[in-house]
Amino acid sequence: MSGINVWISVVLYIIFAPIAGGLIAGIDRIISARMQGRVGPPLLQPFYDVFKLMAKESIAVNRQQKLYVFCFLFFVIVTGAIFFAGGDLLLAIFALTLASIFLIIAAYSTFSPYAYIGAEREMLQVMAYEPMVILTVVGMFMVTKSFNVLDIASYSQPLLYTLPGIFLGFLFILTIKFRKSPFDISMSHHAHQEIVRGVITEFSGPELAMVEVAHWYENVFLLGIVCLFFASNWIIAIVLAIVVYLLEIYIDNNNSRLKWQHTLGSAWIVALILGVGNIAFLALR
């Protein structure tokens, strides 16, 4: 992609990603409600929530936390911008890690017991999914010989055929990244699992709105990676992303939270078997 096109896609991403992300969240809430035998909120409820939060008074334990939360949002947006501009996939992953660290730091800075536990568990989550994320990028490079999102997307064959193990492994850690049960250990949106919401306990009002919006951006980015596995045909790619998300909703509503040991252990075992297995297969071929 050359000059101006890059900037157009970045701007489009910045504008439309939160809309898509918010809609996905709305659909998620309706489907989850139906699965639990409830009617559920209106489709646009996530937007109503965020607008209401933004209008609220800023309450905080200290001044720094707001800065860190803003950095979290900012670098999540940078991540997606690098990705949708067709940039370097590794760089996008690193930017996302930086963003996650800012969220953790924000929770730490409050010196609050609940946020602290949440932050520690968030770190465990990062440690659990990080190897599989890196192996995913490695696998994509081995097939396409490029780290460039644009090159990967325009590869002639669907990556799914050569990277089935990596795809399944990525699906597994996607549950952690989407903060779905059974791996929603740092914060859960299910009230039956926790009343005090882990890592975001001390954020309220506009800060909480920023966290929500950041998650929308992040989810769109993650689904973008899912699409890369079938990028040669964008209709199938989007169908694939929808199926994956529905699957995640299904898993979310049919599991209760596991201990952190299970999150870390299972994610690493999956990365070792599916991820490393797939890479070894490609290397020996």
Partner: peptide, 20 residues
């Protein structure tokens, strides 16, 4: 590529002990 596996897991651990 097999050596990247070491880097992937090692970096995850690195992230954990520095961040805390």
């Amino acid at each position: 590529p097999i050596l990247t596996v070491f880097v992937a897991f090692g970096s995850a651990a690195t992230l954990f002990f520095w961040t805390k």
